[in-house]
Simulated assay, not measured.
Amino acid sequence: MDHPRFYYRKSVNDVKLFLVLIPLINSLNFYLTYDTISLSWFYVATFCIDTLEGYAAWGAIRSIIRYLDDALPYTEAPLKRILLQLIGTSLSTVVVLSFLTELVNWLAGGDPIPLGFYTKTMFLFVIWNFVVNGIYIGFFFYDLWQQAEEQRAPVPVVEEPKPDQTGLMVRFGKKDLLLHFEEISGFYVDGEYTVVCNGTGEKYLLDQSLDKVEEQLPRHSFFRINRQYIIHRGMIRGFERADHSKIHVLLLPSPTLPDSVTASRLKAPAFKEWFALS
């Protein structure tokens, strides 16, 4: 079974999110830690250092979650996974932040940090860690829900092209050319454009989306491997299995197409069935 991971997400970039979120969390920590706060070089420097330490602790948390995504996915033992994740990330948070705090204090030549500081601050560290974990766990289950919705969604019926349709009209300079289906090696998305290429390496831009192009192609000759690529059967030499039930579709050498294109867990079974009909 394919286990979605937080760093596969397209709708939310966790790095950008936490680049903004960590300073906000640190601001709350400041408010809860210090009885009085004034705008001085000491508090500004302390805030900047604490924010950098927060980024370091988040990096450790992210690494542990990434490791557990492979070693113990949520779907195999959700309670055990969440418990191990919370314990492991809490310990890493405390260790990283304590070490960096002591290091900065030693470099600054300050007095030993009183135990009372850690009694209160450690509690905030753990709460901070639980918030971060909650966000990543939410990412996972949101992805899982999205995949379930995609599986339940009805598959649109794609009609075969009309019998007299033998290719696509493409524009090349001032010319409109008919590019026969058998000449086409594949289609791919490049920014806002759909590119069609032939076996000789020529490329043409289409003013249609890849979805619209797919509707016009004969299904026995072309397959939509993912959101970016449609490949002609004649360009496919096989496939290899990848992690999490995905497959890498292997392509013949081409000046315009990559050596392989990845099909997702949801697309892989349909591709195998289609490819077996050749």
Rank of each mutant, 00 (worst) to 15 (best):
W41V: 13
L32C: 10
G201V: 04
I135R: 06
I230K: 00
F47D: 11
T119Y: 12
D2C: 00
W41G: 07
E182C: 06
R62P: 13
D176G: 04
E192F: 04
R62Y: 14
A57M: 10
A56P: 13
W274C: 05
L266M: 14
L178W: 06
M1C: 07
K212L: 11
L277C: 13
L210S: 05
G186Y: 00
I49T: 11
W58M: 10
W41H: 10
G199T: 08
A276Y: 09
A270V: 06
P218I: 02
I127W: 06
G191D: 15
T256A: 08
V104A: 09
F125V: 01
L21R: 03
L277F: 10
A270D: 15
T166L: 14
D243K: 00
L107Q: 12
G134H: 04
T101W: 05
L103I: 04
T194P: 08
D176M: 12
T93H: 02
V261L: 00
T33G: 08
V261W: 02
H220M: 11
Y188W: 10
G134N: 06
V196L: 02
P218V: 01
E159T: 08
V96Q: 03
D50K: 02
F271D: 09
G173P: 10
T101N: 13
E149F: 01
Y204F: 15
H248D: 15
D211N: 09
M169P: 08
L32I: 10
R66I: 11
F275R: 01
V155E: 14
F181K: 04
A60M: 15
E214I: 03
E149S: 00
D50R: 02
V95K: 01
G238S: 10
I236Q: 03
S278R: 06
P23L: 02
S278A: 13
Y229T: 00
V95N: 03
S11C: 10
D176K: 01
P78G: 00
L28I: 15
L84N: 09
I37P: 12
T256R: 01
I49E: 14
L32E: 14
L32K: 03
Q85I: 07
D50W: 04
W274F: 12
N26H: 10
W274G: 05
V95C: 06
G110N: 09
T93F: 03
P154M: 01
L206D: 12
I135W: 09
K212Q: 15
A57Y: 05
S63W: 15
L124A: 06
I127D: 02
V155L: 11
S260F: 09
A153R: 07
H232Y: 10
G109A: 04
A71G: 09
E149P: 01
C197Y: 02
F141K: 01
E183I: 04
P218T: 00
Y188P: 07
K80N: 11
S185V: 13
Y118H: 02
